[in-house]
């Protein structure tokens, strides 16, 4: 095989790998955290991955809850509408998060909110909104510094 072809293949693999880990897959070996980000027309995969990183750096307990209870984040508009989130009981390890490109803090709060529902389900509790709205509000107060 020619050197040029090898360089091209290596470059292509590097490019594909970079795109996957930037937009479609969050992986942290150290914390055993692996989350697929399913794409949608919102193109918010990058925001979701940055939001997960914010959780890891600023609220490790919430990060661990996410990693232990969620393996897929759907970025489409679900029952929560545009800029909202959703948890479907028939798919308990997935959450739906609608976040446009710029809404990093919203994305963090929605992820925590929907993870709260995933925890409620895993503990065989009723799906209750007040607890999860409180979790969303708490994380916003933790991460936003004036």
């Amino acid at each position: 095989m020619k050197l040029k072809t090898i360089i091209f293949i290596v470059f292509l693999l590097f490019l594909v790998n970079s795109i996957i880990f930037k937009y479609f897959y969050y992986y942290n070996k150290q914390n055993n955290c692996s989350i697929k980000i399913s794409p949608s027309f919102e193109f918010s995969g990058g925001t979701i991955i940055r939001a997960i990183a914010v959780l890891k750096n600023s609220s490790f307990d919430d990060y661990q809850d996410l990693c232990q209870n969620v393996n897929t984040i759907n970025t489409r508009i679900g029952c929560g509408g545009f800029g909202g989130g959703c948890f479907y009981q028939n798919s308990p390890n997935s959450i739906t998060v609608s976040a446009s490109g710029r809404d990093l803090t919203y994305a963090v709060s929605i992820i925590v909110h929907e993870t709260c529902h995933a925890i409620q389900f895993s503990e065989n509790r009723d799906i209750s909104e007040p607890e999860c709205y409180a979790a969303g509000r708490r994380i916003l107060k933790e991460i936003i510094q004036f």
Partner: peptide
């Protein structure tokens, strides 16, 4: 009150709003 602020820092990131 938060809404009226001129900006903020998102802890755990390198992002300023």
């Amino acid at each position: 009150i938060a809404w009226e602020q001129d900006g903020c820092y998102v802890r755990g990131s390198k992002v300023i709003l």
